[in-house]
């Protein structure tokens, strides 16, 4: 594996790990505002559902 590919993969896995932690485990909204009530599932809708 060449150097640039290794750096790219490291960044991808790092972002995946950190993103997962903040979005799905600790939920960053709760850290910013402890009174926030979180839904159990993702808020992201299928914006292309009409297709």
């Amino acid at each position: 594996m060449n150097k640039s590919k290794m750096i790219r993969n490291t960044v991808i896995y790092f972002l995946l790990f950190v993103g997962y932690l903040f979005l799905y485990v600790v939920k960053f909204e709760v850290i910013m505002d402890p009174n926030t009530e979180m839904e159990a599932t993702s808020n992201v809708k299928f914006v292309y559902q009409q297709f």
Binding site: I12, Y13, L15, L16, G19, Y20, F22, L23, F28, E29, S42, N43, V44
Partner: peptide, 21 residues
């Protein structure tokens, strides 16, 4: 698959939850 997970479930989700809402 890994890049797709990052795009859809991390970046798009973060844009939605941290900015759009």
């Amino acid at each position: 698959l890994i890049l797709g997970l990052l795009y859809k479930f991390i970046i798009a989700e973060a844009i939605y939850r941290a900015v759009m809402v």
